[in-house]
Design a protein around this nucleic acid. Structure first.
Length: 802
RNA sequence: GCGACCGUGGCGGAACUGGUAGACGCGCAGGACUUAGGAUCCUGUGGGGCAACCCGUGGGGGUUCGAGUCCCUCCGGUCGCACCA
């Protein structure tokens, strides 16, 4: 009997990583693949701290899936890259006093080393970094395409300004009024002229397409809520001065109960509608509101404040003159910036009317009719003229029709989604490729002049002026107008990082082409992405932006599909001691030391064994040993299984087929934890029966390969195979063999388990009942009483009801 | 406040369409082998009870022959949205 060598993960893993690279095993044929499979994972932001377990958890789960598909005969393309532009990187660079252009390559180097070490099946030929001019050339090119199509435009608007970042940020980057990157910093409101992408034009499509995407329901719900569609009508309230105040409402049925109007303090008509005697009060209020930051204005159940303008408008339904107020609970950015207040049927209006003693008129009678406000849409209309007695919904439709015929209403759909503000008054990003010319206006930089390179400047500090650092760089700032040749000025803002990542999946398969952003043939072959795996923290940001960009590109005829990620799976979060890992808590786990100690294979499997991949798990290092013991056992078994061996004992054979079935299903559905448990059960049985032959072990190694690729390769080779295990084929199972053998049937009396019987599969009810009645325990509980009813579940259970 | 998800041993977690609750692993206890062992192997391990049995999936109620799974209600937690008209 030969001596079994010791399992030394470091040696095994190093050996195979070198072999894989040398033999190009992870590099699929991109031009003529048989069964292309694009396995995408969300590329990391290369932080200075290096890859942490959260990243590794996500990448391992995605890599297992890719390797699984590979073994099932797909040509799997699994690229990786770096999302290295952005305020986050830049802030860190400022903090440590190193130029990001120096810092980022170092970080990327670290990430590369870690990503190679953990054994991902990456095709390194197609690595990309968003900071590479060869990449951001095309980010700028996309901007130009959208600009030419009228989808990128400049607009002066109230935008979110983060005083820490000293830049504007998108709505999606504001969390409860605080900056995404600075949870203690409230964003402010500034009126700036900024570049926007017209994502709202796609709101309806972004919403309806969700129905046909194979995404987890939670992610789709997040996007739906974010888009925030509401149906209603725009109603016109006329003033004696001839102005028409437009209000958006989702409850046109309650218009008879509108007893006053409220405009946002910033509403353009405020000036004109203010009566002289109210002017002082109105101006004071508007100043007060302006001084207040957005957060304290929007968040919380603040007491209502407001001021009467001193003028009136006509309720289009009742014809009554109703007072016009301004109040900060009405927001300029939603709807028309003005509302009709129906205090009887809206909580906010009710509070306001109560505070200022404004009239409250109920126009809906609900079931039971509780105290005001009655907000239900299930009631019937009252005090509404000819519409009395109609149910709310129908009444609403009829009222809109009636007002529409008088030019005072239009049915309308509103979205919560805003256009995407992409300007950033910062340095570390791709310059927006626009030149301002006094004669021609904003002109796109011609394609031949792209990229507009980000100049390497030492003084890249942002300031609070709202003007980018690039504006201080005069020789860069001035440029000739591409249209008329006159002296022009470059746009000095850079674009949002989320634009970089909104198209990276298009670049991967075509990354070697320098004359086109993506090759048409390659793109037709590989896209859309087969499976996308990533974190739910990007549910609205990255995923929504990517969908928008793809839709726009499709409409421009630049890609052949409108949804980039037909199948998306969100992984869970790894937590530590019940809490999210974060630098401030000091509980961030860095994988390197664990990989050093246990090896990448053990660590990969351990992470996957913590819990369901899509739910995450709690990291406790005590459990790692269990996985190591398992791999040790596999190692031992494989080395003892060098002979084909005789046929498997029936029990082992059955278990093998059951295991293949379970591991196949569980891997496909990303239930890696239970797949691993099934392999453990199988190994336990093989050992118990001493059945460790080649027959028993080879299928196990194939199933193990996605999870622990290095050790699987090593043992596969030890069993005499010359080619990589990833050129072999995933094992198949025989449903008949998996189901063979006897079964244990539970016998219940009145629903309580009283005995167990082993019978052959498919035994009839009569046979089982007869056997059960002979069982001592069962007999005791039946105790001679007549059995009123029997419930028999084939191969599972018999219940005797007395 | 609104919406979604969740609550199972000492711990992480299993349990297909309602059908043996606690798979698998950690930990723990006892034993074997050892100079030694934080290595390895074997046995046990939800709680109570000597046992027969009884009780157990956050609490209470319901449907059912049968409920962790379905329904109602309450409690607790996580996430998302939050004066969106």
């Amino acid at each position: 009997m030969s001596q079994v060598p010791t399992y030394d993960p470091q040696a095994v893993e190093a050996r195979w990583q070198v072999r894989w690279a040398a033999d190009h095993v992870n590099e699929p044929q991109l031009d003529r693949p048989h069964r292309p499979f694009y396995n995408l994972m969300m590329f990391p932001y290369p932080s200075a701290e290096g890859l942490h377990v959260g990243n590794m958890f996500a990448f391992t789960g995605a890599d297992i899936y890719g390797r699984f598909r590979r073994l099932q005969g797909h040509d799997v393309f699994e690229p990786i890259g770096f999302d290295a532009f952005g305020i986050h990187s830049e802030n860190y660079a400022l903090q440590v006093g190193t130029h990001p252009a120096k810092l980022i390559p170092k970080n990327i180097e670290t990430f590369r080393r870690q990503l190679r070490r953990f054994g991902g099946m990456f095709d390194w030929r197609h690595e990309l970094s968003t900071t590479d001019p060869g990449y951001y050339k095309w980010t700028q090119w996309i901007f130009v395409q959208l600009f030419k199509a009228g989808l990128a435009f400049r607009k002066k608007a109230a935008v979110n300004w983060c005083p820490k970042d000293m830049s504007v940020v998108a709505n999606e980057q504001v969390i409860n009024g605080f900056c995404e990157r600075h949870p203690d910093t409230k964003v402010e409101q500034r009126f700036l002229e900024q570049w926007f992408f017209a994502i709202t034009r796609y709101a309806e499509r972004l919403l309806t397409n969700l129905d046909r995407l194979d995404w987890s329901e939670s992610t789709r719900t997040l996007q739906r809520n974010w888009i925030g569609r509401s149906e209603g009508a725009e109603l016109g309230f006329e003033t004696p001065g001839g102005q028409k105040i437009a209000v958006f409402t989702t409850r046109p049925d309650t218009v008879f109960g509108a007893t006053y109007l409220v405009l946002a303090p910033e509403h353009p008509l405020v000036e004109a509608l203010t009566a002289d005697e109210q002017r002082r009060a109105v101006n004071a209020y508007r100043r007060e509101v302006q001084a207040k930051d957005i957060v304290s204005r929007k968040v919380g159940d603040r007491a209502k404040t407001g001021v009467f303008l001193g003028s009136y408008a006509r309720n289009p339904a009742t014809g009554e003159a109703i007072p016009i107020w301004i109040a900060d609970y009405v927001l300029m950015e939603y709807g028309t910036g003005a509302i009709m207040a129906v205090p009887a049927h809206d909580k906010r209006d009710f509070e306001f009317a109560t505070a200022f003693q404004l009239p409250i008129r109920a126009v809906v009678r609900g079931e039971g009719s509780g105290p005001l406000p009655i907000v239900t849409e299930d009631g019937v209309l009252v005090n509404s003229g000819e519409f009395d007695g109609l149910p709310c919904r129908e009444g609403g439709r009829r009222i809109v029709g009636w007002l529409q015929s008088r030019g005072l209403a239009t049915p309308q759909v509103q979205y919560r989604l805003h256009d995407w503000c992409i300007s950033r008054q910062r340095y570390w990003g791709p310059p927006i490729p626009i030149i301002y010319c006094d004669r021609c206006g904003p002109v796109a930089v011609p394609e031949r002049d792209l990229p507009v390179e980000l100049p390497l400047i030492e003084d890249f500090r942002p300031d609070a002026s709202g003007v980018s650092p690039l504006a201080r760089h005069k020789e860069w700032y001035f440029a000739k107008c591409p249209q008329c040749g006159a002296q022009g000025r470059r746009e000095t803002d850079v674009s949002d990082t989320f634009l970089d990542s909104a198209w990276y999946f298009l670049r991967y398969p075509s990354s070697e082409f320098h004359d086109r952003p993506w090759d048409e043939q390659r793109t037709r072959t590989w896209l859309p992405v087969s499976t996308y795996i990533g974190g739910n923290e990007h549910a609205v940001l990255h995923l929504l932006y990517s969908r928008f960009v793809t839709m726009a590109l499709q409409e421009l005829g630049l890609v052949h599909f409108d949804e980039p990620f037909p199948k998306l799976r969100a992984h869970g979060l790894i937590i530590k001691d019940g809490a999210k890992m974060s630098k401030s808590r000091g509980n961030v786990v860095i994988p390197d030391a664990y990989i050093q100690k246990w090896g990448a294979d053990t660590f990969r499997m351990y992470l996957m064994f913590l819990g369901p991949f899509q739910e995450g798990g709690d990291f406790r290092e005590t459990g790692i040993i269990g996985i190591r013991r398992f791999l040790d056992k596999v190692w031992q078994l494989a080395h003892e299984a060098l002979t084909p061996g005789s046929a498997l004992p029936p029990e082992v054979e059955r278990k093998l087929h059951q295991t293949i079935r379970k591991v196949t299903v569980d891997t496909e559905t990303l239930n890696y934890n239970t797949a691993i448990a099934a392999m453990m059960e199988y190994v336990n049985l093989v050992r118990e029966r001493g059945a460790g032959s080649k027959h028993a072990i080879e299928p196990l190694l194939l199933m193990l390969a996605p999870y622990a690729p290095h050790v699987a390769e090593e043992l596969w080779a030890a069993l005499g195979h010359e080619r990589s295990i990833f050129t072999a084929t995933w094992p198949t199972y025989d449903e008949r063999l998996a189901a063979a053998g006897d079964v244990e049937i539970v016998v219940q009396v009145n629903g309580k388990v009283r005995g167990r019987l082993v019978v052959s599969r498919g035994a009839s009810e009569a046979q089982v009942v007869a056997l059960a009645m002979q069982d001592e325990a069962v007999k005791k509980f039946v105790d001679g009483q007549p059995v009123r009813k029997t419930v028999y579940v084939q191969d599972r259970l018999l219940n005797l009801v007395l």
